[in-house]
């Protein structure tokens, strides 16, 4: 465990707008505190989260990434949160392989009415990331993508 004074872990939370985003909002309006260094990105469904999004977030300086989706069985798109969990688990394995701790990526499930729970899970995650300390990666300019001669491939 690294002891770092005044260290505030940079956490990005990808929150589903149907549940966790509203839960975070409720946590705020109900005055349940969660770390100010946790930044929320609203997404239409956690199923939209790509492994590339999570990895690039780490590359851009995040110390932890939280993916917060609806309760299992309650996804607005039925299985988006289940796909998200599989991807987060895969990213965690990848992080272990590259020398970062897999615990830095976590999936949580929460409903729109669980403001207090959101704050509790966010604080718990922040504590885990604080204990792990910074990733050791320096924020650097994005890598270059070479243009295609014509057309675009997705």
């Amino acid at each position: 465990m690294k002891e770092i004074s005044n260290y505030e872990p940079q956490i990005i939370a990808f929150c589903c707008m149907h549940c966790a985003y509203a839960a975070a909002d409720l946590a705020g309006s109900s005055r349940f505190a969660y770390p100010s260094s946790l930044k929320i990105v609203a997404i239409p469904c956690t199923g939209r989260t790509d492994m590339g999004h999570i990895l690039k977030t780490f590359e851009d300086g995040a110390d932890g990434v939280l993916v917060a989706g609806c309760l299992e069985g309650r996804c607005h798109f039925q299985t988006g949160n289940l796909y998200a969990r599989q991807r987060v688990e895969h990213v965690a394995e990848l992080l272990d392989q590259i020398g970062l701790e897999g615990e830095r990526a976590r999936m949580i499930n929460i409903s729109a009415g669980m403001g207090a729970k959101f704050a509790e899970l966010a604080n718990e995650f922040a504590k885990t990331i604080s204990a792990l300390g910074p990733t050791g990666l320096k924020k650097k300019p994005a890598s270059r993508e070479l243009p295609l001669p014509s057309g675009k491939i997705e």
Binding site: G52, G136, L137, S143, R144, E145
Partner: peptide
């Protein structure tokens, strides 16, 4: 994107960073 990102981070953590640019044909 995923592989390049992972290798960039892995090599940086090792102390021998490799710049990896990306393209597709």
């Amino acid at each position: 994107g995923v592989l390049s990102s992972a290798v960039r981070m892995a090599t940086e953590l090792e102390g021998e960073p490799v710049q990896i640019d990306e393209t597709i044909v």
